[in-house]
Structures are given as C-alpha cells and as structure tokens.
C-alpha cells in the first residue's frame, strides 16, 4: 500500500472508507426495511396528496411514494444519499492537496521525482475508488434489505440511481479537490464544495415548487443528479454527462492552477 501516491491515499483513508461504506449499507438496509410499513399504511398516499406541493417536494411525490422505487427515490436519492456521499467526498477532496499542504507534508512528498499533476490525479483516483466502495455498500444494503423485507426492487433502476449518486459525489469531491489544489486552503475547499451542495439542494427544492422559476433549475447540480428520478426513469444522458463535464472541468482547473502556483512552506 506504499507503492505509490494512489495506494498510499487509499491506505490513509481506509478507515474512513470502511465506516462510510458501512454507513451507506446501513442506510440502504434501513430504508428498505422501513418501506413495507409505508406501503401497507392505508391512506398515506392520500395524506401526501393533501400536502402542498412544496411539502411533497421535500417528503416525496404522492403519486409514486408508496411504490418501492418511489420510496427509495425520496428517501435515498433525494437527501440522505447525497449527504453521505457528499460529506465523504468533500472531506477526501479537502485532504487531497490542501490537507497535505496545511500539514506541511506536501514539500517532502514533492521532493521525490513525481510531478504535481501525477500526485493530483492519483489522489483524485483514490477519491473515486473510495466513492465506488460507498456505492457498492449502498447497493448491497438496498438489495439485502429488499430481500429481507420481501419485496421486489427494480435492480437496473437502483444501479442507475447509484451511478448517478456516485457521479454527484465525484463532482463534490473534485470541486473540493480543485479549490484546495488551486489555493492550498483546506477550509475554503470544504466551504465552497459544501456550499455548492447545500445551496444546490435548497435551490433545486425551492425552484421546483415555484412554477415560474422551474426553468432556472439548471443552475443546481442536483438538477443533473436526479431531476429525471433516475431510479424510476433511468439516466438522462445529457444530465449525467453534464455532471461528468463539471467534474472533468474541476480536475482541469485543479491541474492548471496547481502546476502554476507556489506551494506554501
């Protein structure tokens, strides 16, 4: 695990990856085990129906909430999933370059014959592998929970939903990494990436209930993540590629800035 920067980064993060993967699996289990209660509760859909649209946007859509996929869409792919994946990714992105710089280990690492770009890309790669572990954990949790609770889950839709969630996490993580690599400031990296997430989430929820503002939803990353209700309707290629594009742009900016600036002592 000390062969290169990529493996060393995974080694450093192994506990964090383990805990977040268990957390993701637990989330999947919890939600699927809880689903039959909602499905069987008579009148729950009617209750949702009576709520204002704004409340439905937060709790879940009345039309689909009592189906398995609709329930998971509301409980995993709206708030909890993005939060778990986002926090993990942002912490990893902050630590990647800015974290090393602030703890004064970056100089000594870069005294070895390895380019800044290589360090950055290997760290980005480790972040993406970490998120992949979370995704697998979530998938295992959802599938086993549905088996235990005895209902059928649309596997393809679930996997596509997780892929979209994975890409959202990658986007948050690489934004944090890019800000950290560009400025050397860990706090700023976390702050900006978290702001993109939190503001994005609030905007997406808010704009979706104000009809006049609906066209403006494209400014939030959450729109690209799950406006299509991926677990039900599948991935919208344009949306997914937009997330990929934002993540790629973040890496490009990170490399460009990191290669050109002075490192802090």
């Amino acid at each position: 695990m000390l062969r290169n920067v990529f493996l060393k980064t995974l080694r450093d993060a192994k506990k964090s990856i383990l805990y977040y993967t268990i957390g993701s699996a637990a989330l999947g289990l919890y939600v699927t085990l809880f689903y039959p209660t909602i499905r069987d509760a008579t009148g729950f859909a009617d209750f949702l129906e009576q709520l204002p649209e704004a409340m439905q946007a937060i709790i879940g859509d009345a039309e689909t909430y009592t189906t398995a996929e609709g329930f998971l869409n509301a409980e995993v792919f709206t708030f909890m999933g993005p939060m778990v994946f986002g926090i993990f990714a942002i912490i990893a992105g902050m630590a990647a370059i800015a974290g090393e710089e602030e703890s004064h280990t970056l100089d000594q690492l870069l005294a070895n014959p390895i380019s800044r770009t290589s360090v950055l890309l290997q760290k980005a790669g480790a972040l993406m592998i970490g998120l992949l572990m979370l995704s697998i954990g979530l998938l295992i949790g959802l599938i086993s929970g549905s088996k235990i609770a005895g209902f059928d889950l649309a596997i393809t839709g679930t996997i596509l939903g997780i892929i979209s969630l994975y890409m959202l996490g990658v986007t948050f993580g690489l934004i944090a990494l890019a800000v950290g690599a560009s400025t050397g400031r860990k706090g700023l990296a976390g702050g900006i990436a978290a702001a993109v997430g939190v503001v994005g989430f609030l905007l997406d929820t808010f704009l979706s209930v104000v009809d006049a503002l609906d066209p403006a939803r494209f400014i939030s990353v959450f729109y690209y993540f799950n406006n299509n209700d991926v677990i039900i309707n599948g991935i919208n290629a344009v949306h997914f590629l937009t997330l990929v594009g934002i993540a790629a742009l973040a890496v490009a900016i990170a490399v460009w800035r990191f290669e050109r600036r002075d490192l802090a002592n």
């Binding site: 000390l2 062969r3 290169n4 920067v5 060393k8 450093d12 703890s103 004064h104 280990t105 100089d107 000594q108 690492l109 070895n112 014959p113 390895i114």
Partner: peptide, 23 residues
Amino acid sequence: PGDFVTYEKLTAHELLEYFANLR
C-alpha cells in the same frame, strides 16, 4: 529541510519504504 515534517502516522520504516518506492 531544517524542520523535517512528514506523515506522522507512518513508522520511519514505512516512510522510507514509501519514498524509496516513489524513487
């Protein structure tokens, strides 16, 4: 450097192994 700061959680051996690998 004057004040050698590096990965505190690694043992000296692990650190040297890591840097030797990078080199």
